[in-house]
Design a protein around this nucleic acid. Structure first.
Length: 635
RNA sequence: GCUGGCGUAGCUCAAUCGGCAGAGCACCUGAUUUGUAAUCAGGGGGUUGGGGGUUCGAUUCCCUUCGCCAGCUCCA
């Protein structure tokens, strides 16, 4: 047997040419590395099974669960494990594909419905297969033979037929064989901890016209601890669910009578109005005016804007005096009518016009989701009319504003994407060039790192998108800046240039929060209902020890209200512990205990939401404290 | 929209095989006058999402409709 030279993790070894990677690792790296955590190896951008024979002169890197390649291998082997269990219990199920996804893995099966109860049986069978410690072997066979092997599975046959001629690989563990590119872990015993999380319908190849399959989702980890951590995280996210907190905190509700339309309750309106008050203040500072355009407008307008052709299926229609009208799904056409209400000069530019526009969009019933996906929402929209040369400075202005606003709400991790001209687009090369350069220069002048998405822009212009990351690490696209050459043209919007000619302005559409409703949903989950004081609908609860002290408690409440603080008096005939508990559950930022000592000295005893007791302080001092905290928007 | 699951008091959830629909919280009344996360006692509250069917009898079984939940880009 000849010797070959291979390199693993930058160490070179001379080994038998028929050695497997696993052997080499065990023989040579066993002392220096936890070999049991190695799942596969990577050579260049190809991954190989540990059991595969070494490639002479190759430079390999070992992969563990911490590497993307290792994680993929592990989760994909988990999908195979699940498919084997499914076939043992449901021999008629037809496995199709079983890829790794961000949240674990799934496997789609044809011709077999599953109930949630089946998942437990499948999990139990998976545990058995793990205990059986079945070796996972790669098999290579000619296409003809592969077709014969999978002849009873039309999905696999279709996939094999689409593959190029030559050898086709499959993996076998015990009685189960699956078509697969690999790699896989060496044995079923590697999959130590797993959980099947949900069943769902999915179409073969994502195509609504093709057969419906049953999908089972699962997640897996090398250790039980990691699985437990993951499940605990899921549970924590569930407890922060804005739909649940919205009900518990009496912020908003949904009703059958208006599917997808949020009803804002008094406490929710406080939240919403607080956001809007702040938003107006910042917009004033950044040189915006504010307008409001109607909810329902003549259909002709929507034909002119192009929405009739491109957005009709998402719009609501109605008649007024036998004339067709539409409920606005966007604010821009209305905004353009306002622009066109008078003559404009280049001297007015840039013209920054904001609108908190309530828009209605028909979303598919299946995608509605609390405040995150609704059919009516308030956009914090604005349209900036300017010359192509002004685009860059305007974008800089918006970018600064975006970061300032996110920062105030406690979002400091912002991800930016720039999308450029798609293949199908309108507008001259020259104007695209100016606009794209404007956006890019704006970002670079502010030292903002961004991801470039070539060809992902809108057909009418390039755009910048802003994503914020919440405390659970989830990313939300909120802000957007879109340069538009099309709409002003369609509406024949003009301005008088310095040379006396009529020109078409560039229109920049932008939103920062995106949808107010969705943004508030994000805030609720980000803070888990524990809002910073300035946002909190429940700022101060005044809690008398008994109703003997109601007089001073009322005086305290009034003084706070006069200072603009949201203070509520708990005048119930309950004991103190009960009143504290209720205030706590309602997430009041401060609870003021009022008893004989306080009444006598004109003070308040201050308890924080955290449970911390600040002791007694004079009423004036407390009022100052909370007024300052609110004014500073302390997080 | 499609697939699957779910729908019982304001909320969270029980109700055996088809046999008188229940609990806790909340609410109301009374007692308790309370010092930092649940005082005690009593009371009211339901067309079991809506409509239809099977049955002597339906929360339970069937059909239909509405709503809610999850998934529906991830390519062997």
């Amino acid at each position: 047997m000849s010797q070959v030279s291979v390199e693993i993790n930058n160490q070179r070894f001379d080994v038998q040419s028929d050695s497997s990677w696993a052997q080499v690792i065990a023989d040579h790296l066993g002392n220096s590395l936890d070999t049991s955590s190695i799942l596969a190896v990577e050579v260049g951008d190809h991954r190989y099974d540990l059991m595969a024979t070494v490639i002479p002169n190759a430079s390999a890197k070992t992969l563990t669960f911490a590497d993307e390649g290792g994680l993929d291998t592990f989760r994909h082997s988990s999908a195979h494990l699940m498919a084997q269990a499914v076939l043992r219990l449901f021999p008629d199920a037809k496995p199709t594909i079983g890829p790794v996804v961000e949240e674990g893995f799934y496997y789609d099966f044809g011709a077999q419905p599953f109930t949630p109860e089946d998942l437990q049986r499948i999990e139990a069978e998976m545990a058995k297969i793990v205990a059986e410690n079945l070796p996972i072997r790669r098999i290579e066979l000619p296409k003809e033979q592969a077709l014969a092997q999978f002849a009873d599975n039309p999905f696999k046959v279709e996939m094999i037929q689409e593959l190029e001629e030559g050898t086709i690989s499959a993996y076998q563990q015990g009685d189960f064989i699956d078509l697969c590119r690999g790699p896989h872990v060496p044995s079923t015993s590697f999959i130590k901890a797993f959980k099947l999380t949900k069943v769902a319908g999915a179409y073969w190849r994502g195509d609504i016209n093709r057969p419906q399959l049953q999908r089972i989702y699962g997640i897996s980890f090398p250790t039980a601890e990691e699985l437990d951590d993951y499940l605990a995280k899921l549970q924590a996210a569930k407890e922060r669910d804005h739909r649940r907190l919205g009900q518990e905190m009496d912020l908003f509700s949904f009703h059958e009578e208006g599917t997808g339309f949020p009803f804002w309750h008094a406490k929710g309106m406080v939240l919403k109005n607080t956001v809007v008050d702040y938003w107006r203040q910042v917009h004033h500072k950044y040189g915006y005016t504010e307008i409001q355009t109607p909810q329902i407008l003549n259909q002709v307008l929507w034909q002119m804007s192009g929405h009739w052709d491109h957005y009709q299926k998402n719009m609501y229609f109605t008649n007024i005096d036998d004339t067709p009208h539409a409920v606005k799904p966007m604010n821009c056409p209305g905004g353009l009518l306002v622009y066109k209400a008078k003559m404009h000069s280049y001297r007015e530019f840039p013209l920054r016009v904001a609108e908190l526009g309530l828009v209605h969009r028909h979303e598919l019933s299946g995608v509605l989701h609390g405040l995150f996906r609704v059919r009516a929402f308030t956009q914090d929209d604005a349209h900036i009319f300017c010359t192509p040369e002004q685009v860059k400075d305007e974008v800089v202005n918006v970018i600064r504003q975006v970061f300032e606003i996110y920062e105030t709400f406690g979002f400091s991790d912002v991800h930016v994407e720039l999308s450029t001209r798609p293949e199908k687009s309108i507008g001259s090369d020259e104007i695209w060039q100016i606009a794209e350069a404007g956006l890019q220069n704006a970002l670079e002048s502010q030292d903002i790192s961004y991801q470039l998405n070539p060809g992902d822009g809108a057909f009418y212009g390039p755009k910048i998108d802003f994503h914020i990351r919440d405390c659970m690490g989830r990313s939300w696209q909120c802000g957007t800046i879109q340069v538009d050459f099309s709409m002003p043209e369609r509406f024949k919007a003009t301005y008088e240039a310095a040379d006396g000619t009529r020109k078409t302005p560039v229109m920049i559409h932008r939103a920062i929060l995106g949808s107010l409703e969705r943004f508030i949903g994000i805030l609720i989950e980000h803070y888990g209902g524990k809002f910073p004081l300035w946002l909190n609908p429940n700022q101060v609860k005044v809690v008398p020890v008994s109703d003997k002290f109601l007089d001073w408690a009322q005086t305290v409440t009034d003084a706070l209200a006069k200072a603009g603080i949201r203070a509520d008096l708990d005048s119930r005939k309950e004991n103190l512990g009960r009143k504290i508990r209720d205030a706590q559950l309602q997430q009041y930022g401060y609870q003021l205990v009022i008893g004989g000592r306080e009444a006598e000295s004109g003070s308040v005893s201050v308890r924080l939401r955290s449970g911390e007791d600040l002791g007694a302080m004079p009423l004036d001092e407390f009022v100052n404290r909370v007024v300052t905290e609110v004014a500073n928007r302390t997080l």
